[in-house]
């Protein structure tokens, strides 16, 4: 009895936090998305669906498509890097595994904005990578590694890769090694074992990681701003601009709500594949 009461009391701050800082703003954004903006950046209390209809304008649809393409490519590259990486470390000793995973998590301890600035030093025309390649005479002219889509994707992959590695690693380290041995015993080579046994056994981690990469990727406006040179408009940039530059809050709110709905659909799909919500909030 006492135990239950104690549990209730210690959860109060969390509930208050969620209500005040997450739910209330969300309700505000939701209401806002049905209102009108005046020409000075204020809000007129008139109910209308205009903001949502505006999203179907070709200009904005293009932003949605671009964002999803960048997010998709980022997710795929993260999968391609994370699988071999996770398979590699899962075969190491327990101690080595912990150390390597700590290295994956370590960058989280610094601000991602600062890390993105770090990439500018590496990627720009006079940056570290170009200087080295030029001095080694591997290239004659500096490569355009940033202020384009490549820069955005490099930045996104770098920032979001740990979100792919963590759930995938957790899935892969749970595979019963005997399944892999059984597969070899039954005549499967490494490739067949990977696609027929390892991938199907880690599908939860794969979806989980993909979701954790795909969704933030749509919203990380500062990476598109800093490494994309502002040439490519992503959904995150669009929302930020509506609130801060164009000062059309209701339209910004409508895009945010649309993005939220898309996210919900993706999570629903994830659950349908057998994913558990616990795994999403697992770290």
């Amino acid at each position: 009895m006492k135990d239950k009461l104690f549990k209730k009391i210690i959860t109060i701050p969390v509930i208050v936090y969620a209500l005040v800082l997450i739910l209330l703003p969300l309700i505000y954004i939701f209401i806002l998305s049905f209102l009108k903006s005046d020409s000075y950046g204020g809000v007129i209390n008139v109910f209308n669906l205009g903001n949502y209809l505006k999203i179907f304008d070709m200009v904005y649809i293009k932003v949605f498509v671009q964002s999803f393409l960048i997010a998709l490519v980022t997710t795929l590259i993260c999968i391609l890097i994370a699988y071999p990486f996770c398979l590699f470390i899962s075969q190491k000793k327990k101690k080595t595994q912990t150390l390597l995973m700590a290295l994956v998590i370590l960058p989280f301890l610094t601000n991602s904005l600062i890390r993105t600035y770090g990439w500018i030093v590496l990627l720009r025309k006079e940056g570290v990578i170009n200087t080295i390649l030029l001095n080694l005479n591997i290239i004659d002219n500096p490569l355009s590694l940033m202020y384009n889509n490549l820069g955005i994707i490099i930045g996104m992959v770098y920032t979001l890769l740990p979100f792919m590695i963590l759930p995938l690693y957790s899935s892969i380290s749970k595979i019963d090694n005997r399944l892999i041995e059984a597969s070899k015993d039954l005549g499967a080579g490494s490739m067949a074992t990977f696609f027929k046994v390892i991938v199907p056994s880690t599908v939860t981690g794969l979806f989980n990681g993909s979701l954790m990469v795909f969704i933030p990727c749509i919203g990380y406006f500062f990476i598109a701003d800093l490494l994309g040179g502002g040439k490519l408009m992503l959904l995150g940039n669009l929302i930020k601009n509506q609130f801060l530059t164009a000062r059309n809050w209701p339209f910004g709110a409508a895009i945010s709500i649309t993005l939220l709905i898309i996210t919900f659909v993706l999570v629903k799909l994830y659950k349908k594949t057998g994913g558990k919500m616990d795994d999403l909030g697992g770290f």
Binding site: R178, L179, A182, S183, L186, G187, G189, K196, P200, S201
Partner: peptide, 30 residues
């Protein structure tokens, strides 16, 4: 994989994502 020897493992190690048919067919599919 190239030895004409097969094993029955201690806890069977059946592939959990495959049905009985696919489990049994695995070797021949390979």
């Amino acid at each position: 994989k190239d030895r004409e020897i097969n094993t029955i493992f201690q806890s069977y190690a059946l592939f959990p994502h495959m049905n009985v048919y696919d489990n049994i067919a695995f070797g021949l599919k390979m």
